[in-house]
Every structure is written in structure tokens, then in C-alpha cells.
Simulated assay, not measured.
Amino acid sequence: MNLDGLRVAVTGAGRDTGRLLAAAFAERGAHVSVAARDPAAAEQTADLIRQRGRGAAEAFACDLANPDSVRAFAATLADRTDRLDVLVNNGAGYLHGEDLGDVEDDAIVAAIAGAVTGTVLLTKHVLPLLRASPRPDVVNMISACGEVGHHRSGAHAAFYAAKHGQAGFAEILSHRVRADGIRVISLFPPDFVQDGPRESHAELTAKSIVDCVLFAVGQPRDCFIREFRFEQVQAPEG
């Protein structure tokens, strides 16, 4: 797939799945704005892309739980480019714990603010850049925790709340920006691993999720893949 010249922004791109996403877009010729809460981690991802010699990357600080940081990142993008072709809302802090008391209040506030408020604000502030693109896409890395009736993750209830908030935002955003030609593509993966055998009875891998994103973004404009829902690996019987 050739994505030469595509302008892409990926949040939470300082490690793990976000880093894989940023690198995958760059490997196909895109210019990637790598955003992470930790500027050093963002720079590491950008350096990795530069070393591979395909596409291009710039690193930016963006703390999704801090509205000023979100607005500053969006303003910097507007200063650097006249359009944004793909926004990947990947950044979100994971919280583990089956009891509400397992997590401190500040961590709950940060998780919900980052995943929900940060996603809404960043999308809002880069929307003019997306509307200036001839092929705009918004990709939301949600979670099966955002699906109604999903109970199989060990994530904290606040993480479930955050992901339901993201899912609700994606739903109404898709409806309201479709007339502008903007596709809103959401992924609802179950808990997954960064690497693995990629076999039918194994856990879902980050690489497979990245492949889904690239597939959806690479489709012609008459093909709008709105959501990816995944089967979760079944526990063995007995």
C-alpha cells in the first residue's frame, strides 16, 4: 500500500501500539506527526522512523489529559501543515483493577480525561485541517471495553467508562461529519498482546490491529468501514 505524502497524526505514539501505528504509516510513505505525553518517547519513535528511511516523522508533546497541551499540539499542526489526512486517536491510559478502590482518584480522573476529553478536544481543534484534506479519516482506537455488555476484561471500571465515552463520541461524530466526506473508523479490540503467533487460537496482536487500520484507511472513498469488532479468544473448556 502506497501512502506517499499522506499527513498523519498519531497520539500515544511513544510506545507499543501507537509506535507500531506511526511506523507503519511512515513505512508506506506518510509524513507522521508523532504525539506522546512524554516528549522523549515521541522523539524515540520519530528517530526510529527516520532511521528506516521511509516516510517522515516529527515528534510532539501532547498530554491528552491536559487541555492546554492538546490545544498547543493542534495549533502547532496548523502552523506546520494546511491539511491533515488521518487522525489516529490512539492515546489512552489503561487502568487495571476489578474493585473501584484499586485505583487512586487522580489516576481515574487522568484516564477519563485523557481518553474522552482529550480525544474530543483534539478532534475538535484539528477538524479544520481534516476538512481541508481530499481524503480525511479519523481512526479511534477504542476497546471492547466500550462495547455494551462486554465484561471480560480485567480493566478498572473507570477504563470501561472512558471507552464507552469514546464510543459514544465516535458514533455521533461519524453521523455529523459524514457529509464533509470524513470517515470515522473505530476499532474495538479485546485485551491484546504486542506480539505473538497470530494464529486462530492465540490472542489478538497489535500487529493485526495495525493491519486493520491500514486496510480501512487504504480503501477507496466509496468504501467506509465504520467499525472493527473482534472475537475474543475462548478460554479452554474443562
Rank of each mutant, 00 (worst) to 15 (best):
V86H: 07
G101Q: 06
A30D: 05
D180C: 07
E98V: 13
A35N: 02
D99I: 08
V103Q: 02
A36W: 06
Q51T: 12
V148E: 05
R50P: 00
G218E: 05
I172D: 04
Y160F: 15
A167R: 07
E98K: 15
A41P: 00
I209N: 05
F25A: 05
I209R: 12
R226C: 02
S133C: 07
M141V: 13
A161I: 04
H175S: 12
S133A: 11
G91N: 06
F73H: 13
G181Q: 03
P67D: 01
G181N: 03
D4S: 11
C212P: 00
A170P: 00
R152F: 12
A72G: 10
L3G: 03
R54W: 06
V148N: 06
V70K: 09
V193I: 14
V213M: 05
L204T: 10
H164P: 00
A56E: 07
A23M: 02
P190Y: 13
V103S: 11
P190G: 06
A40N: 09
R15L: 03
T123V: 06
V184S: 05
H175M: 09
A46F: 12
A23Q: 07
G146R: 03
A206K: 02
L64A: 08
L173Q: 02
V210C: 07
A132Y: 08
F25P: 01
S200A: 14
T205K: 05
V138M: 03
V213C: 06
V213W: 07
G218C: 12
G5S: 02
R229A: 11
V193G: 10
E199C: 02
H96D: 11
R54S: 04
A65V: 05
R54N: 00
H175G: 13
A158E: 03
D68K: 08
R7Y: 11
G5D: 08
A111H: 02
G218A: 11
G238R: 13
A144M: 10
L100E: 00
A59G: 01
G168H: 03
I112A: 06
I209K: 08
A42H: 03
N90D: 04
R176Q: 15
G181S: 06
H151Q: 12
V217A: 01
V193Q: 13
L129S: 10
K207H: 15
V70Q: 05
A56W: 01
P197L: 08
H201F: 14
V138S: 09
I108E: 00
I112Q: 08
V103N: 05
G29Y: 09
E98Y: 12
S200C: 01
R221G: 03
A30I: 05
R178N: 01
C145V: 14
G118E: 01
R229V: 15
T17W: 06
F215S: 01
G55A: 10
T119V: 04
I182K: 03
A179L: 04
A206Y: 14
S208T: 15
R71K: 13
S143R: 08
H125F: 15
G101W: 09
